[in-house]
């Protein structure tokens, strides 16, 4: 009886939490949809020769063509998809590791809590972007390695948030009731504690997305990303750097692409935070 009562209450709280998050989540979903569908409206593929090199923006090529004749507009659309999906992957992996570590620290034995929290403290006290540069430089530049490198410095942040929420939730009556009614520890953790950590985790993650997009673009600009001619926005800007004075459109449009993507992510994160703070 108690178990039924508490679990409906918990799911009621979960539903309430999610409806609060709707606005921001819808925004993230819309950006994802646009990013995934974007390449469908691209007039060319990312790596095919589309016209005379160095054609300025105009009717034949909306954003002009680059030094080997690729269509910059098409490449930016493909690059936006790559950037956004990479950022989602980093945040997703970070949230997953953070959830596991946070729950282990919050519910596990004291020594495990101490150990995990000292590790997260250490990571949080280091300049993340620089450590990510070092990680990718050590294991060699490629898209997967960049995602690994950034995820490595990103998860501790989520682990702390989850751990804090778990410690607050685990002493609440519904968790105690669930434990007393003989439910196993794992099920208590996944069904009665975890749902309560979602809303703060999602708010933190959505506030982070824009910063992840910027960090990944910066690494790609420094040559730590997929090798050319992959349509990475940062790498495209680097390639166009030498022609900034004669063909500004080659490096500038990819940069504007990053800015627009980051702005969209920041706006939805900002709204989400404002909404969740009001309640």
């Amino acid at each position: 009886m108690t178990a039924i009562l508490t679990s409906t209450r918990a799911s009621g709280r979960l539903a309430g939490g999610l409806s609060r998050l709707n606005g921001g989540l819808v925004a993230v979903a819309v950006i994802t949809l646009l990013a995934v569908l974007g390449p469908l409206v691209a007039p060319h593929t990312a790596t095919e020769a589309a016209g005379v090199p160095f054609t300025p923006p105009g009717a034949s090529a909306l954003f002009g063509t680059d030094d080997v004749g690729h269509d910059v507009f098409s490449r930016v659309l493909y690059g936006l998809r790559l950037s956004w999906l990479s950022a989602l992957a980093v945040v997703g992996v970070g949230m997953l590791i953070g959830l596991v570590a946070g729950v282990l620290a919050g519910l596990g034995p004291r020594w495990l809590d101490e150990l995990l929290m000292r590790i997260t403290d250490g990571f949080l006290a280091m300049p993340g972007a620089l450590v990510a540069i070092a990680v990718v430089a050590a294991i060699g530049p490629s898209l997967e390695h960049t995602l690994i490198g950034v995820s490595v410095v990103w998860w501790p942040y989520y682990a702390r948030i989850v751990r804090g929420e778990v410690r607050a939730i685990r002493s609440r009556p519904h968790v105690e009731a669930a434990r007393l009614s003989g439910i196993g520890r794992l099920r208590v953790a996944t069904h009665h504690v975890l749902p309560g950590t979602w809303s703060s985790l999602v708010v933190a993650a959505s506030l982070d997305l824009g910063y992840v997009v910027l960090t990944l673009a910066g690494l790609s600009f420094l040559g730590l990303g997929a090798p050319p001619p992959a349509p990475e926005l940062g790498a495209m800007a680097t390639q166009g750097l030498s022609s900034i004075l004669t063909a500004w459109w080659i490096p500038v449009f990819p940069g504007i692409g990053v800015a627009v993507l980051t702005f969209a992510a920041n706006l939805s994160g900002d709204r989400l935070q404002a909404q969740s703070g009001r309640i």
Binding site: G210, L214, A217, G218, F221, G234, A237, T238, L241, I244, L245, W248, P251, V252, G255, I256, V258, A259, V260, T262, F263, N266, L267, D270
Partner: peptide, 26 residues
């Protein structure tokens, strides 16, 4: 104002440098 600041803070550092070179140098 908050939205405008958010927009400026969304520009990657390399875009700022490129725009700076274009406007103030070229």
């Amino acid at each position: 104002l908050n939205t405008v600041l958010l927009a400026i803070a969304s520009a990657p550092a390399f875009l700022l440098t490129l725009l700076g070179i274009m406007v103030f140098y070229r």
